[in-house]
């Protein structure tokens, strides 16, 4: 509460405060989690299995009911908004798996994701195809025929089609080869540099920490620690407790 009005607040794009949320009313998975995403930065959320990372992203996206706490996006309260309104607020969400429509072609996937009523749909599409030439080549193919890495890029392209200012990414590296993981994460970096803010959940702690700006560690539905990713990465105590100890340093 003290930080309100601080000059750097203007850079806060999304702020979730004291979120309590879960699939079943009396069984919260998140128990008062607070995170902030900064403009043009990659904010990383890590933690052990069951920490509530994905639930946090889904709660922000309106897919998991929030029983307490607020979500604020660019000064607007968006707590518990309808998922289909996300895009119109300027938020995109890339789910962990099943994040493309296999039975639609690549072009149809993108057409669907394009912001309705957006005047420059064609321009957006051209821009996306320039960014992802592999998708442009296969645009008439069924999305189900894409490889894992290409699917992830299509999912990201679908998120970008709505011209969002914030992207929520839930483990984009899940099921990908190390090489594809690297490509996807590097692309996230490129997007952030271009001014899109990213809230990223990742299991691939090592690579993700190198690339992100700020990092939150969650456990058992609560905030544990947070700070600039580089600091946390080099903090031996954090490394020992949360990041799997020796494994991190030796790599």
């Amino acid at each position: 509460m003290l930080i309100l009005g601080q000059p750097w607040m203007t850079n806060v794009v999304l702020e979730a405060r004291e979120l309590t949320a879960g699939y079943v009313p009396d069984l919260p998975i998140l128990r008062g989690v607070s995170v902030r995403a900064m403009r043009g930065k990659i904010t990383l959320i890590i933690g052990p299995n069951g920490a509530g990372k994905s639930t946090l992203i889904k709660a922000i996206a309106g897919l998991v009911p929030i029983s307490a706490g607020t979500v604020n996006f660019e000064g607007t309260d968006i707590t518990g908004l309808r998922t289909d309104r996300l895009a119109s607020h300027g938020i995109a969400y890339v789910p962990q798996n099943n994040n493309i429509f296999r039975s639609l072609t690549i072009r149809q996937n993108l057409d669907l994701a394009l912001r309705r009523g957006s005047a420059n749909g064609v321009a957006v599409l051209d821009h996306l195809f320039a960014q992802f030439p592999a998708l442009a080549e296969k645009q008439k193919d069924k999305a189900g025929s894409l490889s894992g890495g290409q699917r992830q890029f299509l999912a990201i392209a679908m998120a970008l089609a709505a011209e969002p200012r914030l992207i929520l990414m839930d483990e984009p590296s899940a099921g990908l080869s190390p090489k594809a993981t690297q490509e996807v994460l590097e692309h996230a970096r490129v997007l952030a540099t271009s001014g899109v803010s990213i809230l990223l959940v990742e299991q691939n702690v090592n690579q993700a920490m190198r690339l992100s700006d700020h990092c939150y560690i969650l456990a058992e539905g609560r905030n544990q620690i947070d700070g600039p990713s580089d600091d946390l990465r080099n903090d031996s105590v954090v490394g020992e407790i949360y990041l799997g100890g020796r494994r991190l340093r030796s790599s």
Binding site: A61, L63, R82, T83, D84, R85, L86, A87, S88, Y93, P95, N98, N99, I100, F101, R102, S103, L104, Q108, N109, D111, L112, A113, R115, R116, M158, A162
Partner: peptide, 24 residues
């Protein structure tokens, strides 16, 4: 048509369709 894609999208994956702005 985009309406048609939306129908097929909902048939395949309703929550992803919502994520993509389809009113379920």
């Amino acid at each position: 048509t985009t309406f048609g894609y939306a129908l097929r999208a909902v048939a395949e994956n309703p929550s992803l369709a919502q994520v993509n702005g389809v009113n379920l």
